[in-house]
Design a protein around this nucleic acid. Sequence first.
RNA 1: GCCUGGGUAGCUCAGUGGUAGAGCAGCGCACUCGUAAUGCGCAGGUCAGGGGUUCAAGUCCCCUCCCAGGCUCCA
Length: 673
Amino acid sequence: MAGEVTVRLPDGSARTLPAGSTAADLASAIGRRLAADALAAEVDGELVDLRRVLPDGATVSIVTPASDQGRAVLRHSTAHVLAQAVTALWPGAEYAIGPAITDGFYYDFDLPGGARFTDADLERIEAEMRRIVGEDQPFVREELAIHDALSMFAGQAYKREIIAGVAQQGEPGFGAEAAGDVAPGATTVSIYRNSDAFVDLCLGPHVPSTGRLGHFKLQRVAGAYWRGDDKRPQLQRVYGTAWESAKALEEHLHRLEEAERRDHRRLGADLDLFSFPPEIGSGLAVFHPKGGLMRRLMEDYSRQRHEAGGYEFVYSPHITKSDLFETSGHLDWFADGMFPPMELDEGQRYYLKPMNCPFHIMIFKSRQRSYRELPLRFFEFGTVYRYEKSGVVHGLTRVRGLTQDDAHIFCAREQMAGELESTLTFVLDLLRDYGLDDFYLELSTKPPGKAVGTDEEWEEATTTLRTVAESMDLDLVLDEGGGAFYGPKISVQVRDAIGRSWQLSTVQLDFQLPQRFAMEYVGADNARHRPIMIHRALFGTVERFFAILLEHYAGAMPTWLSPLQVVVLPVRDDHDAYARHVAATCAAAGLRAEVDPASEPLGARIRRHRMQKVPYVLVVGDDDVPAGTVGVNRRGTKDPDKGVFLDVVVAAVAAEVAAHGLPERGGDVAVVR
RNA sequence: GCCUGGGUAGCUCAGUGGUAGAGCAGCGCACUCGUAAUGCGCAGGUCAGGGGUUCAAGUCCCCUCCCAGGCUCCA
C-alpha cells in the first residue's frame, strides 16, 4: 500500500510504518529504551545504519550494543575515531584500513616523514579520541562517484588503491552485497564523515554519533604490512579494545590479566619446569626435573593407551640423507620450514627431519607386506626440527625442536573409513583423560596451488573425512584450503578453562606418499595394492600439549600429573620421625611425597608449597603423632581438615590418582596471586 | 625477516652523565613454631656483547645478539 511499509521483526511479528521511515524510526516505534540503545540495524541480513530507509517487506532487527554485531559496529566506529585522532595529531598521516576484530579493533597508518608511534603516543591519541567522543559528532554517510572519491582521497594512496580495486572488479565485501543499493561493477562508493575534520572511505554501518562510544582502550602498536604482504610497505598498526559498557571493558581487561597469569612461560619459570637458555638457541627448550617428570607422566600414559589401542612402537633417527625428503616432496614443498642441510665429505647432504612420516614408510617397506597385516599402526614420540622464522617462536607452543606423538596407519582403501572413525574416537577419549572435554572439529581442504595429487583423490579423501567427522556429534567447521600439501585433514580444536581454543590433534589422510614411495602390499587376490596412509598426532606436539595443559590448569595440575603430590610438614623438629613415617606411607602407596622439616615457621612452609601448587600439604604435630592422624590441606581449599587418619588420606589420594581425578581443576585461582 | 618495546644480582625491578641499589630467592647462624612471608648476617653484577662521544657512560650515539607483542581478522 502506498504511503506505508510493513516490516517483519525477529520475533515473527510485523509492523507497519509510514513510507520513508528509517530503522531509527522503527526502534522508536517499538520502544523508548530500544530507541536509546539502538546502534544500527540488520535489514534482510545486511548491517546498515539507523538512518537507512526501510524497504517494504524487509525483515529487520535492531542492533544493540550488548551483542556480537553491536560490539562489531561500535569497535569499527571506535577505529574511525582513532583514525580521526591520529590525523588530528599527525597532519598528513595516511590511514589504510581499520576493521573490528575479535575483542577489539585496529587501524593501520603511514605517518608523514616515516614517523613511528611509540607507546607514549598511545596516551596522547587516546586523550584526543576522548575529546572527539565528548563532542558527540554524528557519523554521516554519503555516496560518491568513483572519480569523485579518487579526488577526495587525493593524498591517501591506500584509500585510492582500495577505491581502484572496487572500480575494477567490485571487490568481495564491497559493492553489491554489502552496499545493498550498489550493483556489481559499482560506480559509487560510500564514505562516512564526522565533523568537517574527518572523512573515511567506509562501508559502514556506524553508530549514530561518537557520543555512543567511550568504553575503549588503546593497547599496543605494531608493524603490519599493507595487505599482509611483506613486499609492500610496512604500516604502523594501533590495536585497541572497545566494549558496550565500562563493566564489559573491565571484565575483558581482567580476562587478559588472567591469561597472563596462566602464561605457561611464566608458570614454567615459577614452578621450575623448563627454560629456554639463549645459549642453546631460539625455540629450543630444556625440561627441568619437575617438568621432565610431568612430561614423562604424560608420555607414559599416552604409550599405555596406544599399546592398548593396537599401535606398535618404532624409533627413527633425527637426520637423514636428502633422498628421503626428495622422494617425499618435503624439499619441494616444505624446504622453507627445514634447517639447512649438513654437507658431508662425498657431497652427500643430510637434513634434520622436520617430519617422521618417511621413516615410518621405510619400516613398512623393509619387507614385503601382506593384507593380513593391515592395518599397521606405527607409533613414535618423534623429535623433529623445523626452522620457524625468528619472529614466530613462542614459548613451548611454537618451537624449533619439537616432539610429535606421531603415528602412521597403513591400511587398505576399504579399511580407511573405519580406521579414521576409530582413530577419532581414540583421540577424543585420550584427550578427555587429560581433563580436556570441550571440542570441535575442523576440516581442512586442498590448499590451492600448493598440493600434489589429482582432484579426484582429494575429493575422495575429503568426502571420507567429512563423513567421519560428521558422525562424531561435534561441531564441524570448514577450513577452506588449510590442508597439507599431501592431503586433507581433520583437526580437533579444544577450548580450555578460560575459553580459548587451541588446535590439538590432527588426522590427515594421504594418498600421495604411498604413491611417491611406491608402497605396496599383497592382497588376498595375490595382486599388489597400494596402501592408504593416515597421519595422526594427538597432542600435536608434546611441548605444545604440555603448555596447553599448564595454562588450562593454571599450573595446578591434576594430582596424577603433579610432580610432587604430597608434602609433609612437621610442626616442630620432634615431629620429624612421624612426618617421615607419613611420607613413607604415601610412597608405599605409590605417591610422590616429601618432608619439609621445621627449620622455618610453619606458615612460611605452607605458603611456599601452596604457591608451588602441591595438591596435598599434610601438617603433623603434637595431636597427630599419638593419634596416627594428619592435618590435610587440599589444594584449592582455604581451611585445613584436621585429625584425619593417615590411611584414610592415603587411600583417598591414591584413588584420585588412579582415577585421574580432577578434584578442583584450577580452583586455587582466587587464593594464590 | 620487518615494526614497536625491552635486556641492570638466580627472579621482579629502581637507578637519564659524577663511588651500581632494593625486595624476594641463595648461603650461614639463631629461632622449634598448628596453617599463606621469624630475625640477624653474608655473598652475589665486565649494567646483553662490541665500538664511539666525553675529564667522566648503566645513562648519549652506532653495530650485533637475545626476549616480548604484532605482521592471519581487509573500506
